[in-house]
Design a protein around this nucleic acid. Structure first.
Lengths: 159, 159
DNA sequence: CTAGAACCTCAATCAAAGTTGAGGTCAAGC
DNA sequence: GCTTGACCTCAACTTTGATTGAGGTTCTAG
């Protein structure tokens, strides 16, 4: 064996997978993306520091908040020395992500309010209905048409 | 011309695009998916009924709420005769979607609360932290590992 | 020593929601 | 009659976040 067995200071990819609940293939993927790093044994197998477990946890949490991997990557990369976040770092990152989360919630709540208003009305005019036109959820998924364009005065409204 | 010009009872795809703010390519796509339908002129060009404008509006709104196209399609298809939703239909659909929206908001709020709790703690243990383990946002994007697995007692916690 | 589990790489595939481009037709104005 | 813009189809490509499979190595237990 490579490092002494009873010393679990390092994790194999399988162990990291089990303990994090993230598939091995996903861990490989994260590593390709530069989100986590590993040492290689003489036999070319990955060994992760225990801190990687925390790093993976952080990644998954950020994902749940809705942060794309690229941005998580940027955030982690911005830490001095590429270190895995410590308490202070975590506070910083989490404050930022909490703000993002708050904003996301607010947008959805606004949407819900408009929606509730509109249910009674049945108005689906793109011109008039606040629902159809406003507070665009920018980029919920990839590239796509975000613009919602001006329109004439005579359009269908209120079914 | 195909139908008399001053009679704008039908829309070309370009017109529908302009008035709905949805790209022509997207409208074609929706049509391929069966979300909207068109008549064809003698020259094989699409002509949409004005009601399609409302239908597209509805589709975009549902998308903003977070409903995938496939499900929007199912909902619309469930209407008798494949008709474009009228007031009553809209009420039904929108009630359903509002419930979905509410649920989405609640999940995010729960996440935020956990998040707020955790910020002070800095705990990123996958085993103990409610953040890392609970109320999984099922399927925010496609296929992927959703399971978050049990783990031993001795893991890193609280940085 | 050997079987089988776990690991490796690399390329292909998936899913959603479209966009882009090639190559060709249709329609309207001058 | 011709040019220009809008339209047509079909196939290929995009992005994100991975999974799956082929083909091959390494590690561990018996």
């Amino acid at each position: 064996m490579d490092t002494v067995a009873w010393n679990k200071s390092e994790l194999t990819v399988g162990e990291l997978s089990q303990r994090s609940g993230v598939a091995v293939s996903a861990l490989h993927f994260y590593e390709r993306q530069g989100l986590i790093t590993s040492r290689r044994t003489s036999g070319n197998q990955r060994r992760y520091r225990r801190a990687t477990l925390r790093r993976v946890a952080l990644i998954r949490i950020a994902q749940r908040v809705g942060i794309p991997l690229a941005e998580i990557n940027r955030a982690l990369a911005s830490l001095p020395d590429g270190r895995t976040p410590n308490q202070k770092d975590w506070e910083q990152l989490s404050q930022q992500w909490r703000r993002d989360l708050d904003a996301r919630i607010q947008r959805l709540q606004q949407l819900r309010d408009d929606f509730t208003d509109c249910i009674g009305c049945g108005c689906l005019s793109l011109a008039r209905c606040r629902l159809a036109n406003m507070h665009d959820e920018l980029g919920e998924h990839g590239p796509g048409p975000r613009r919602l364009i001006e329109q004439g005065p005579n359009d269908t409204c209120c079914v």
